[in-house]
Write a protein that binds this DNA or RNA. Structure first.
Lengths: 142, 142
DNA sequence: CTTGACCTTGGAGTCACTCCAAGGTGCTTA
DNA sequence: TAAGCACCTTGGAGTGACTCCAAGGTCAAG
């Protein structure tokens, strides 16, 4: 299997596959006589796994941990659960942040015509926010 | 006011201020005799506005639009509302994506001990996801 | 005159890709 | 045999919004 076929099979681009190889999440491929990368079914399965993890918004670090666990002789739930739970935690944190953000934005929006001044109440509203020191990120999700 | 004092007053780092200047969201500062950047209250107000927009997860492009509108002689709600509404849209899209993600992750988590096989049901579960071609992003929020 | 806090610039690193240019490979058709 | 074409190779630059660092300059206090 050449890289283009693998890309089609895994629903990603050849660029992404080469990037995964360089990033060390996908093992290096064998090469053909003409220096083309050559893949087998195992590579496809691994790549599909990685793509699924990415679809679940995991980082490459999280994915590497999972793959390492998977490759260990005794791949038990005990090793996998903490990784998954940490990730679920990230998602929950981000959900709460975004929910708070949304209500703040809606509140701001409602100030639009609430002011009799010459300028838009929204701009005044944004200027009036009291910013706190930026909280350190609890999640890799933007 | 030197850059360090401005940074303290606006709750950000000097690096961030210099970056904003290079990125064109904050106007260039005057320089002292010793080539230090020198700021006045107007700069602080502007920087606070920018930091508040960032706290609302707006991009620099969105912020530049707002600032431009604000600097126009007739800064009305008519110009501001579309920008704000588009941003609220981004937040809502991302909220829905993350909610879907969370239920998928919880579903996955529940498969942990649901399998009698030797390996963890979670890993099997991730491998079994049928990935769709990656949807183009509707939002800049990660 | 030295110390130390602050400032300057430029460049590299982050994350997970994406896009591109210049050139090589290999199969089909004329 | 040659040309054409689809595919492959590498390396490097760009994305966004910073963050971190090194090497050196400025300035006030002791």
């Amino acid at each position: 299997m050449k890289i283009g076929e693998l890309a089609v099979a895994a629903n990603c681009t050849t660029d992404t596959i080469r990037f995964y190889e360089k990033a060390g999440v996908l093992p290096k491929a064998d090469r053909t006589h003409g220096n083309y990368r050559s893949y087998g079914p195992a590579h496809l399965e691994r790549l599909r796994f990685i793509r699924n993890c990415r679809a679940l918004d995991m980082t490459h670090d999280e994915i590497r941990s999972l793959l390492q666990t998977m490759d260990a002789p005794s791949a038990g739930c005990d090793d996998v659960l903490p990784i998954l739970d940490a990730h679920i935690g990230h998602v929950e944190v981000r959900l709460q942040e975004l929910a708070a953000l949304k209500s703040q934005l809606l509140e701001l929006r409602s100030q639009c015509h609430n002011e009799a001044s010459g300028t838009c109440g929204i701009l005044t509203g944004i200027g009036a926010i009291q910013s706190e020191p930026v909280v350190e990120r609890q999640t890799h999700l933007g």
